[in-house]
């Protein structure tokens, strides 16, 4: 069975969907990705779907679930390169992709991930600084 490769780039993961994204592939990706986030300690995931030409409600849900699961693992998800037709289909199907960020292309997506991760670490630092004084912030993960 086809499996979608997950590439590690620093503290981010890169997923490019270029094969036929049918149900089993989608489920396998969800599984692989959550495991990889944990093993690699990733802070962000970039999913490129520019080659995806059709989407159904199941795939929409899987993408949403990936985002939700990543969020639980303290990892932001950015979906990039969505085709206009796919965007229209998803809104028409009424799939709410909550907790998922979007960007026009991989470049914009990377920049967005960078910003999100930075904002989060800043927020964490100030909160920690006020709560546990004296403890170095880099020991606080998650």
């Amino acid at each position: 069975m086809d499996r979608i490769p997950i590439l590690k780039l620093g503290d981010k993961l890169l997923v490019t969907i270029q094969v036929d994204f049918h149900d089993r592939v989608a489920l396998a990706l969800q599984e692989d990705l959550t495991e990889k986030i944990l093993s690699a300690g990733a802070k962000g995931v970039l999913i490129d779907i520019s080659a995806l030409e059709m989407v159904d409600s199941f795939m929409g849900r899987v993408l949403g679930n990936i985002a939700k699961a990543s969020r639980l693992l303290d990892c932001e998800t950015v979906l990039v390169g969505m085709q206009p037709a796919i965007a229209i289909t998803i809104t028409e199907l009424g799939i709410a992709l909550q907790g998922i960020h979007t960007a026009l292309n991989a470049e914009g997506g990377m920049a967005l991930l960078e910003r999100l991760i930075k904002a989060k670490s800043n927020r964490g630092r100030t909160a920690n600084a006020s709560k546990i004084a004296g403890r170095p912030p880099n020991l606080q993960r998650g």
């Binding site: 979906l79 990039v80 969505m82 206009p84 796919i86 965007a87 229209i88 998803i90 809104t91 028409e92 992709l97 979007t102 960007a103 026009l104 292309n105 914009g108 997506g109």
Partner: peptide, 12 residues
């Protein structure tokens, strides 16, 4: 609202 959410999905 539909148009806005489709635009958001595109990353804009």
């Amino acid at each position: 609202i539909k148009t806005v959410s489709a635009t958001r999905l595109m990353g804009a």
